[in-house]
Simulated scan of single mutants.
Amino acid sequence: MGWYSPKKGLLLGSLFLLLSLAGCLKSAPEPVELRGRAMGTSYKILYLPTAETPEESEVQGMVALTLSQVEQKMSTYLKDSELSKLNQAVKPGVYPVSKETYRVLSEALTLGLESGGALDITVMPLVDLWGFGPTEQKGIPPEDQIQEALAKTGLDKLALDPKGGQIQKKTSNLTLDLSSIAKGYGVDQVSDLLKNLEIKNHMVEIGGEIRVLGERPGGGAWRIGIEEPVPEGGVNRVVELSDQSMATSGDYRNFFSEGGKNYSHTIDPHTGRPVIHDLTSVSVIHSSCMTADGWATALMVLGEKKGFQLAEKKGLAAYFIYRDKDSLKTRGTAAFNQLLNPEAGE
């Protein structure tokens, strides 16, 4: 799970595969591909440069700086990050936060309320207890420890100043984990950077969370594969995206087994335990990768039935892959089907 362990450290959100570009590129310039590591995982950027685009090395440096700034604010693995320092403040009270962290906290709380608490950024005590945090000591904890950790969580224990710039911890020992949403925010930040550099055709992927702008090399929408949630991989569905983001949450990459049973990294904030249902993967398409990231986690917590109902109610473009006995079945919301096949709605 790397940096953002509760959801995606071992490429947990990385359920996408950029499909091979078909055919030959029709015109210069050649696309530029950047690769690197950040936020505990790998990233890949593909873009079409123009005459005004900075040198490749300069773009790479700006990308690295952008992601480093996100880490320095929101990582739970860096002890000196803004979020880690905030978690180290154990007493109730009002604490200042940067505008960037406030923005992500605000979106997380909004999605938490809209999902009925399925997305809960206060679950860090439970994430650590089950071994999906920085300690990574996985195992089934005693019941009394689960209840003790559960008592420390809850969105009602956190408030944001509507004027911005500060938050209120209403109880002691309240700790926050933005791993369910901050990686998507990082994708958005890099995409915005490229856009500001007048790189209007690009794809940004960090640990599987993706945002695309404009057209792919060779022309046309970007073709992205949603991965088959099985050990051997493969592509389950191809989607064509332009000026959109897609994020996925799944249960089949980051888990531990004990007593013949698998325990997923996705913690249900209501029970304090890993989720138990048939949903194995859910992908959400949205203009904001941060928002798609948060919703993917929330729907994964809720499961195939409740998650699908909520996604339909909220008008989300979501794609569910779930187990049905010994096979996998899929289901897309009306918004997802309309997005990928607009003629069907006419």
Rank of each mutant, 00 (worst) to 15 (best):
I285M: 10
A108F: 04
Y319R: 03
K314I: 07
T76H: 05
I267A: 08
G220K: 04
G131Y: 02
T66F: 01
G250A: 06
E82H: 06
P31H: 13
Q168A: 13
S20H: 08
G207Q: 12
F256V: 00
R37W: 15
A296P: 04
V32G: 14
V190E: 08
M124C: 07
P31V: 13
E107W: 13
G345D: 14
V90A: 15
Y77L: 14
P217G: 08
L328F: 13
G250M: 04
N201R: 07
S20I: 08
I181F: 09
G164T: 00
R273N: 13
L17G: 09
H265M: 09
L46V: 10
D278Y: 11
L34H: 11
N173I: 07
Q166H: 12
G259V: 01
L67S: 01
P54D: 01
P54F: 03
V70M: 06
G207V: 07
L86M: 04
S191R: 13
E205P: 09
I199Q: 04
T122D: 00
R331N: 12
E52D: 08
T122H: 00
E136T: 01
D268G: 09
S20N: 11
T271W: 12
L213K: 15
S5A: 12
T50N: 13
A89S: 08
G260I: 01
A64R: 10
G117A: 05
A38R: 13
L65Y: 13
L17I: 14
L279H: 07
L213A: 10
S14V: 12
A221I: 08
G112Y: 06
W222S: 09
Q145I: 06
